[in-house]
Write a protein that binds this DNA or RNA. Structure first.
Lengths: 130, 130
DNA sequence: CTAAAGTCTCACACGGATGTGAGAGTCAAG
DNA sequence: CTTGACTCTCACATCCGTGTGAGACTTTAG
């Protein structure tokens, strides 16, 4: 598929799709014309990229991660205990973030719960008004 | 405490501590000299900030969140349906972020799980060596 | 063949998080 | 008082993810 279709299917701009390629996250074939030729799996890959970026990972970290995720075999980390160590660190950071966010959300829920019904009602109307 | 102590205790540069204040994340008192006077709780607050930033949240989002995380002042929203609406939106964003982070962590777990025991062992030794 | 739509590369721009340095004021030890 | 360490503000600089536009080439529809 060409770039506009991948853009449509993933909701990610062409600019970013080219940027991800520049960062080594995507490696589409090229047609004789120079047009990029993406494959079906790239749709999933782009979704992975978006998730990991939203989680605060950098493109270079993601670049390390993606080969492991596509190639079913763990050959890559088989040779590289250092990478495994990085992944463990990354996981710990993610867990800490999840805990933080979950705590924050609970607190938020408690605050929201203190709103008197009249205010809830007013807010609901505000929401409709948009 | 003054800024260099907070820097030492949190590992966050003075530049960033001032930046967080500029963004409304910290509100240290000022001495007559103009020096910032931080309190004990600021250490924890800074840790929260670092975690939330690492989770991909912006300073403005964190600014909305922090008051909820320290003191659950429910009186705040009694007068202001607009704020309640913001909190609901914030909650939705938090849930989305949590989902993304959890997805990312599961992905990471699957990658880690492909490591053969020999590599796990090598990694464990690397970890000790630090 | 022509026109329109799609794609390419390149380059400039921008906001957010962070580093770095200059110049001036404050504090504490000798 | 002087000196050195600490702090202040202000400004410029950098990296990263992203937007936008120009100018040239490719593909497709009529």
């Amino acid at each position: 598929m060409r770039i506009s279709e991948l853009e449509r299917r993933t909701g990610v701009s062409q600019r970013l799709l080219r940027y991800y390629e520049e960062q080594g996250l995507l490696r589409p074939e090229r047609r004789p014309s120079g047009y990029r030729a993406y494959v079906e799996a790239d749709v999933t890959t782009v979704e992975h990229i978006r998730n990991l970026l939203a989680a605060g990972l950098s493109t270079t970290t993601i670049a390390d991660l993606l080969p492991c995720m596509s190639s079913a075999g763990g050959q890559l980390i088989a040779d590289c205990p250092e990478l495994l160590l990085d992944l463990h660190r990354e996981r710990a950071r993610l867990s800490a973030a999840i805990t933080e966010l979950t705590t924050a959300r609970s607190t938020l829920d408690r605050v929201i719960a203190t709103a008197p019904p009249s205010v809830e009602h007013a807010a609901a109307q505000l929401r409709e008004a948009r």
